[in-house]
Amino acid sequence: MVTVLLFGLTLRDSVGESEVGVEISGPMSVKKLIEANQDRLAGLLPFMNRGELLVTVNKKVGTLDSTVKDGDVVKLTHQFNPTYEGARWHNP
């Protein structure tokens, strides 16, 4: 199981909860994790498509292409304006 933690009211409201446990069958990217679990994480898709998600995997800065495996913790934070907030360097 991968634990997905959602930080910020915008993301929590889009999914309906602040922590989601997702079962996976093998390693996959964060992007694939979200796309494969649209029944629970579909609210994240608009933010992902606009590049407004900051990704952390096991307390390390990551991207949507970072690989996650069973037991990992993924933290997602909403970044409203990546151009002006200066954190776009790791999330193209």
Rank of each mutant, 00 (worst) to 15 (best):
N58S: 00
F80C: 00
P27H: 06
N58V: 03
M28F: 00
P46N: 00
K32M: 11
L6M: 07
K59R: 12
I34W: 05
V74N: 04
G71M: 06
M28S: 14
R88D: 13
G21A: 13
K75L: 01
Q79I: 07
S18V: 00
L33M: 13
M48N: 08
V57D: 01
D13V: 06
L9N: 13
E52G: 02
V74P: 04
K69T: 13
K31E: 10
Q38T: 09
K59M: 09
Y84M: 11
K60Q: 14
T77I: 12
D65S: 14
V68G: 02
G51Y: 01
V2D: 07
S29D: 02
A36C: 09
S66M: 08
L33P: 09
G21V: 11
P82T: 00
G51R: 07
Q79G: 02
V74C: 05
L41Y: 02
E19N: 11
N81A: 10
R40S: 10
I34Y: 04
L53N: 09
T67L: 15
N81D: 15
N49S: 13
E17H: 00
E35W: 12
E52P: 08
G62S: 10
N91D: 04
D13M: 11
S66P: 06
R50C: 02
W89P: 00
N91T: 13
W89G: 11
G21M: 09
S14A: 15
T56W: 12
G26Y: 03
G21S: 14
V61N: 10
W89V: 08
H90K: 12
K60Y: 08
T77H: 06
E19G: 04
K75W: 00
L64H: 03
R40T: 09
H78S: 05
L64K: 05
R12G: 02
F80P: 05
E85M: 13
Q79L: 15
G26W: 01
G16Y: 03
I34V: 15
P27G: 13
G62Y: 13
G51Q: 06
M28Y: 02
P92A: 07
M1Q: 13
L76T: 01
S29N: 01
V20Q: 10
E35N: 15
G62H: 07
E35F: 14
T83A: 08
V30H: 03
H90D: 11
M28I: 02
S29Q: 01
G62D: 07
R88Q: 11
L53Y: 08
L5K: 15
K59T: 06
V2W: 01
L76P: 01
T67N: 07
L54A: 14
L41I: 03
V57M: 09
P82Q: 12
N91A: 13
W89L: 11
V15S: 08
T10K: 14
T77C: 06
